[in-house]
């Protein structure tokens, strides 16, 4: 299953709920304001690093660019995808769960 999250982890609990419900091996894609969860040196970072040991995590490049976030600011292990990559991810999974 592909899980997408689109809310800032500093404002909403969508990411926490996602991480609670995500099964080992499932894939997480951070989009819109959730891309802030992918950045280094935040109170969220440890949580994301823990998740990375069990799940692949992607972040949407155009949403990073728009917010002035560069690749060097992204937690190691998180992969940046463009819109085409988003579509590929959705196509690879039978189900998409959006935590909004």
């Amino acid at each position: 299953m592909l899980h997408t999250v689109n809310k800032s982890p500093f404002e909403k609990t969508s990411l926490d709920t996602c991480l609670r419900l995500v099964r080992t091996g499932a894939v997480i894609l951070l989009i819109e304001d959730a891309v802030y969860a992918a950045t280094k040196n935040t109170v969220i970072e440890a949580k994301i690093k823990r998740a990375l040991t069990q799940n692949r995590i992607y972040v949407l490049g155009p949403d990073l660019d728009a917010r002035g976030l560069q690749d060097s600011e992204i937690i190691d292990g998180i992969e940046v995808v463009d819109y085409g990559g988003f579509v590929d991810l959705a196509g690879e999974h039978r189900n998409v769960q959006s935590w909004f």
């Binding site: 299953m1 995500v22 099964r23 189900n95 769960q97």
Partner: peptide, 13 residues
């Protein structure tokens, strides 16, 4: 619940 979600054809949020 995560297990049940995995079995669904459609998830509506």
């Amino acid at each position: 619940i995560a297990e049940l979600m995995e079995q669904q054809d459609v998830l509506l949020n």
